[in-house]
């Protein structure tokens, strides 16, 4: 169950709860099926509702970066809460230009 919005070629997905290895695989399938169905130009992953994330979440972002690359689109990571910002900056994914 994903909270999604699609407007002007932008697919916004609001993630909720805890992102770990346990939850990442179903999130991955759900997000990729939305990407393939809508083929957006931009995928926005909204982290405002995420209370916990470990390195499995970094894998999830990197994987969606690739999924969007395959269809010629881009990914943006938005509304990152402070506690999750620390693991995101540690991961170096900001170098990919995905942070907004």
């Amino acid at each position: 169950m994903l909270d999604t919005k699609y407007k002007n070629d932008i697919l916004t997905i609001k993630l909720k709860g805890e992102i770990d290895h346990n939850s990442a695989s179903s999130l991955r399938t759900a997000i990729d099926s939305q990407i393939n169905a809508l083929r957006p130009k931009i995928l926005e992953l909204d982290f405002s509702g995420v209370g916990f994330m470990d390195s499995s979440g970094i894998g999830l972002i990197m994987g969606r970066y690739r999924s969007m690359g395959l269809i010629g689109g881009k990914i943006k990571v938005i509304n990152v809460p402070e506690n999750i910002g620390r693991i995101i900056s540690l991961s170096g994914i900001s170098a990919l230009g995905v942070l907004k």
């Binding site: 990442a24 470990d54 390195s55 970094i58 894998g59 999830l60 693991i87 540690l90 991961s91």
Partner: peptide, 11 residues
């Protein structure tokens, strides 16, 4: 292939 970032120990 499982989308692991290789960051667990670094974290």
């Amino acid at each position: 292939q499982e989308e692991r970032a290789g960051l667990g120990f670094t974290v």
